[in-house]
Design a protein around this nucleic acid. Sequence first.
DNA 1: GATTCCGTTGTGTTGTTGCA
DNA 2: TGCAACAACACAACGGAATC
Length: 209
Amino acid sequence: MNRTDRLYALAVELSASAPRCVPARALAARLGVSVRTVERDVARLRRLGLPVEPRRGEGYRLAEEAGAGGVLPPVVLTAEEAAAVAAALRDVEEDGLAAPARSALRKIAAALSVPEREPAGPPPVARTVERALARGRALRIGYADRTGAVTSRDVEPRILLAGRGSVRYLVAWCRLRDDVRVFRLDRIASAVELDDATAGGAAAQASGR
DNA sequence: GATTCCGTTGTGTTGTTGCA
DNA sequence: TGCAACAACACAACGGAATC
Protein backbone atom coordinates (compact mmCIF):
# COMPACT_ATOMS: atom_id res chain seq x y z
CA MET A 1 0.00 0.00 0.00
CA ASN A 2 1.53 3.31 -1.01
CA ARG A 3 1.31 6.47 1.05
CA THR A 4 -1.64 7.94 -0.84
CA ASP A 5 -3.68 4.77 -0.45
CA ARG A 6 -2.74 4.68 3.21
CA LEU A 7 -3.93 8.23 3.74
CA TYR A 8 -7.27 7.30 2.19
CA ALA A 9 -7.48 4.18 4.35
CA LEU A 10 -6.58 6.14 7.45
CA ALA A 11 -9.25 8.73 6.74
CA VAL A 12 -11.80 5.97 6.22
CA GLU A 13 -10.78 4.16 9.43
CA LEU A 14 -11.12 7.34 11.47
CA SER A 15 -14.40 8.24 9.82
CA ALA A 16 -15.83 4.77 10.31
CA SER A 17 -14.80 4.71 13.96
CA ALA A 18 -16.00 8.22 14.82
CA PRO A 19 -16.85 9.42 17.39
CA ARG A 20 -14.80 6.71 19.12
CA CYS A 21 -11.03 7.00 19.42
CA VAL A 22 -8.74 4.54 17.67
CA PRO A 23 -5.34 3.85 19.28
CA ALA A 24 -2.34 4.51 17.05
CA ARG A 25 -1.27 0.92 17.64
CA ALA A 26 -4.56 -0.40 16.29
CA LEU A 27 -4.35 1.85 13.25
CA ALA A 28 -0.79 0.70 12.65
CA ALA A 29 -1.86 -2.94 12.81
CA ARG A 30 -4.75 -2.40 10.40
CA LEU A 31 -2.60 -0.51 7.89
CA GLY A 32 0.39 -2.79 8.25
CA VAL A 33 2.83 -0.03 9.16
CA SER A 34 4.58 1.15 12.28
CA VAL A 35 2.99 3.41 14.87
CA ARG A 36 5.48 6.09 13.90
CA THR A 37 4.26 5.99 10.30
CA VAL A 38 0.65 6.28 11.49
CA GLU A 39 1.62 9.38 13.49
CA ARG A 40 3.28 10.88 10.43
CA ASP A 41 0.22 10.15 8.30
CA VAL A 42 -2.11 11.63 10.90
CA ALA A 43 0.06 14.74 10.92
CA ARG A 44 -0.23 14.88 7.13
CA LEU A 45 -4.01 14.59 7.26
CA ARG A 46 -4.10 17.38 9.83
CA ARG A 47 -1.90 19.59 7.67
CA LEU A 48 -4.25 18.87 4.80
CA GLY A 49 -7.12 20.20 6.87
CA LEU A 50 -8.77 17.06 8.24
CA PRO A 51 -9.64 17.69 11.92
CA VAL A 52 -8.03 14.65 13.53
CA GLU A 53 -7.85 14.99 17.31
CA PRO A 54 -5.17 13.20 19.36
CA ARG A 55 -6.61 12.01 22.69
CA ARG A 56 -4.01 10.98 25.20
CA GLY A 57 -4.65 7.56 26.55
CA GLU A 58 -7.32 6.91 23.91
CA GLY A 59 -5.90 7.41 20.43
CA TYR A 60 -7.02 9.45 17.44
CA ARG A 61 -10.48 10.41 16.34
CA LEU A 62 -12.16 12.74 13.90
CA ALA A 63 -13.26 15.98 15.48
CA GLU A 64 -16.96 16.49 16.22
CA GLU A 65 -17.42 18.63 13.12
CA ALA A 66 -16.28 15.85 10.83
CA GLY A 67 -17.07 12.67 12.69
CA ALA A 68 -20.11 10.52 12.24
CA GLY A 69 -22.60 10.76 15.01
CA GLY A 70 -25.82 8.84 14.97
CA VAL A 71 -25.64 8.49 11.22
CA LEU A 72 -23.26 6.80 8.84
CA PRO A 73 -21.06 8.85 6.55
CA PRO A 74 -22.33 8.86 2.97
CA VAL A 75 -21.77 5.55 1.23
CA VAL A 76 -21.63 5.71 -2.53
CA LEU A 77 -23.27 2.76 -4.28
CA THR A 78 -23.68 1.92 -7.93
CA ALA A 79 -27.22 1.33 -9.17
CA GLU A 80 -26.55 -2.42 -9.12
CA GLU A 81 -25.24 -2.28 -5.55
CA ALA A 82 -28.21 -0.20 -4.44
CA ALA A 83 -30.57 -2.74 -6.03
CA ALA A 84 -28.79 -5.55 -4.17
CA VAL A 85 -29.08 -3.71 -0.86
CA ALA A 86 -32.75 -3.04 -1.53
CA ALA A 87 -33.35 -6.74 -2.21
CA ALA A 88 -31.61 -7.65 1.04
CA LEU A 89 -33.65 -5.08 2.94
CA ARG A 90 -36.89 -6.59 1.62
CA ASP A 91 -35.80 -9.91 3.11
CA VAL A 92 -34.97 -8.24 6.43
CA GLU A 93 -38.46 -6.73 6.59
CA GLU A 94 -39.70 -10.13 7.74
CA ASP A 95 -37.21 -10.36 10.60
CA GLY A 96 -38.47 -7.76 13.06
CA LEU A 97 -36.61 -4.91 11.40
CA ALA A 98 -39.49 -3.91 9.18
CA ALA A 99 -39.59 -0.22 10.14
CA PRO A 100 -35.90 0.59 9.67
CA ALA A 101 -35.77 -1.59 6.57
CA ARG A 102 -38.72 0.26 5.01
CA SER A 103 -37.14 3.58 5.93
CA ALA A 104 -33.83 2.59 4.33
CA LEU A 105 -35.69 1.33 1.26
CA ARG A 106 -37.47 4.68 0.88
CA LYS A 107 -34.09 6.48 1.01
CA ILE A 108 -32.56 4.22 -1.60
CA ALA A 109 -35.61 4.54 -3.83
CA ALA A 110 -35.46 8.31 -3.50
CA ALA A 111 -31.74 8.38 -4.29
CA LEU A 112 -32.17 6.18 -7.35
CA SER A 113 -34.85 8.49 -8.72
CA VAL A 114 -32.77 11.64 -8.28
CA PRO A 115 -31.87 12.06 -11.98
CA GLU A 116 -35.56 12.10 -12.92
CA ARG A 117 -36.48 14.58 -10.20
CA GLU A 118 -33.56 16.98 -10.68
CA PRO A 119 -34.66 20.56 -11.28
CA ALA A 120 -33.40 22.52 -14.25
CA GLY A 121 -30.25 24.61 -13.90
CA PRO A 122 -26.87 23.90 -12.31
CA PRO A 123 -27.00 21.26 -9.52
CA PRO A 124 -25.70 22.11 -6.05
CA VAL A 125 -22.01 21.56 -5.44
CA ALA A 126 -22.57 18.71 -2.99
CA ARG A 127 -24.73 16.81 -5.42
CA THR A 128 -22.21 17.31 -8.22
CA VAL A 129 -19.43 15.99 -5.98
CA GLU A 130 -21.47 12.97 -4.90
CA ARG A 131 -22.38 12.19 -8.48
CA ALA A 132 -18.76 12.45 -9.66
CA LEU A 133 -17.73 10.20 -6.78
CA ALA A 134 -20.34 7.63 -7.73
CA ARG A 135 -19.41 7.72 -11.40
CA GLY A 136 -15.68 7.75 -10.79
CA ARG A 137 -15.27 11.02 -12.66
CA ALA A 138 -12.84 13.86 -12.11
CA LEU A 139 -14.05 17.29 -11.06
CA ARG A 140 -13.03 20.87 -11.80
CA ILE A 141 -13.69 22.86 -8.66
CA GLY A 142 -13.30 26.45 -7.61
CA TYR A 143 -11.91 26.20 -4.09
CA ALA A 144 -11.60 29.02 -1.58
CA ASP A 145 -8.70 28.56 0.85
CA ARG A 146 -8.59 29.90 4.41
CA THR A 147 -7.76 33.39 3.14
CA GLY A 148 -10.69 33.33 0.78
CA ALA A 149 -8.59 33.13 -2.37
CA VAL A 150 -10.35 30.97 -4.95
CA THR A 151 -8.29 28.68 -7.17
CA SER A 152 -9.43 26.35 -9.92
CA ARG A 153 -8.34 22.75 -9.47
CA ASP A 154 -8.90 19.47 -11.26
CA VAL A 155 -9.39 16.76 -8.64
CA GLU A 156 -10.17 13.05 -8.55
CA PRO A 157 -12.68 12.42 -5.75
CA ARG A 158 -11.87 9.52 -3.44
CA ILE A 159 -13.86 9.74 -0.21
CA LEU A 160 -16.61 11.98 1.11
CA LEU A 161 -16.60 12.42 4.88
CA ALA A 162 -19.61 13.90 6.58
CA GLY A 163 -20.90 14.47 10.08
CA ARG A 164 -24.00 15.56 11.87
CA GLY A 165 -23.29 19.18 11.20
CA SER A 166 -23.11 20.95 7.89
CA VAL A 167 -19.36 20.51 7.46
CA ARG A 168 -18.38 17.79 5.01
CA TYR A 169 -14.97 16.95 3.61
CA LEU A 170 -13.95 15.68 0.23
CA VAL A 171 -10.72 13.67 0.14
CA ALA A 172 -9.42 13.82 -3.42
CA TRP A 173 -6.34 13.61 -5.56
CA CYS A 174 -5.42 17.13 -6.58
CA ARG A 175 -3.94 17.17 -10.06
CA LEU A 176 -2.65 20.71 -9.51
CA ARG A 177 -0.63 19.73 -6.44
CA ASP A 178 -0.07 16.16 -7.62
CA ASP A 179 -0.94 14.92 -4.16
CA VAL A 180 -3.90 14.00 -2.00
CA ARG A 181 -5.83 16.96 -0.57
CA VAL A 182 -8.80 17.44 1.73
CA PHE A 183 -11.41 19.99 0.68
CA ARG A 184 -14.14 21.37 2.87
CA LEU A 185 -17.33 21.09 0.86
CA ASP A 186 -18.58 24.45 2.04
CA ARG A 187 -15.47 26.08 0.58
CA ILE A 188 -16.04 24.65 -2.88
CA ALA A 189 -17.52 27.59 -4.73
CA SER A 190 -18.19 25.67 -7.92
CA ALA A 191 -17.92 22.11 -9.17
CA VAL A 192 -18.10 20.80 -12.70
CA GLU A 193 -17.89 17.11 -13.56
CA LEU A 194 -15.23 16.34 -16.16
CA ASP A 195 -15.42 13.70 -18.83
CA ASP A 196 -12.26 11.87 -17.81
CA ALA A 197 -12.48 9.11 -15.23
CA THR A 198 -10.49 8.94 -12.02
CA ALA A 199 -7.72 6.39 -11.56
CA GLY A 200 -9.61 4.43 -8.97
CA GLY A 201 -13.08 4.45 -10.49
CA ALA A 202 -16.40 4.31 -8.70
CA ALA A 203 -16.00 0.83 -7.26
CA ALA A 204 -13.09 1.84 -5.06
CA GLN A 205 -15.10 4.75 -3.68
CA ALA A 206 -18.04 2.58 -2.70
CA SER A 207 -15.90 0.23 -0.65
CA GLY A 208 -13.48 2.87 0.57
CA ARG A 209 -10.56 0.54 -0.13
C1' DG B 1 25.72 -0.31 -15.15
C1' DA B 2 27.34 2.43 -11.27
C1' DT B 3 26.76 6.30 -8.47
C1' DT B 4 24.34 9.93 -6.24
C1' DC B 5 20.39 12.18 -4.45
C1' DC B 6 16.02 12.37 -2.35
C1' DG B 7 11.84 10.84 -0.29
C1' DT B 8 9.83 7.41 2.59
C1' DT B 9 9.79 4.33 6.31
C1' DG B 10 11.24 1.92 10.57
C1' DT B 11 13.60 1.94 14.99
C1' DG B 12 14.96 3.95 19.13
C1' DT B 13 14.89 7.47 22.62
C1' DT B 14 13.12 11.09 25.48
C1' DG B 15 9.51 14.06 27.04
C1' DT B 16 4.64 15.04 28.07
C1' DT B 17 0.05 14.08 29.47
C1' DG B 18 -3.94 11.65 31.45
C1' DC B 19 -5.62 8.19 34.40
C1' DA B 20 -6.04 4.57 37.94
C1' DT C 1 3.70 6.57 41.22
C1' DG C 2 3.40 3.59 37.40
C1' DC C 3 1.40 2.73 33.10
C1' DA C 4 -0.30 3.74 28.53
C1' DA C 5 -0.27 6.52 24.61
C1' DC C 6 1.01 10.51 21.78
C1' DA C 7 4.73 14.11 20.31
C1' DA C 8 9.03 15.09 18.64
C1' DC C 9 13.54 14.20 17.28
C1' DA C 10 17.71 11.71 15.36
C1' DC C 11 19.47 8.15 12.71
C1' DA C 12 19.79 4.38 9.41
C1' DA C 13 17.98 1.50 5.67
C1' DC C 14 15.64 1.09 1.47
C1' DG C 15 13.94 2.04 -3.20
C1' DG C 16 13.23 4.88 -7.19
C1' DA C 17 14.72 8.62 -10.16
C1' DA C 18 18.30 11.21 -12.16
C1' DT C 19 22.84 11.59 -13.80
C1' DC C 20 27.19 10.20 -15.70
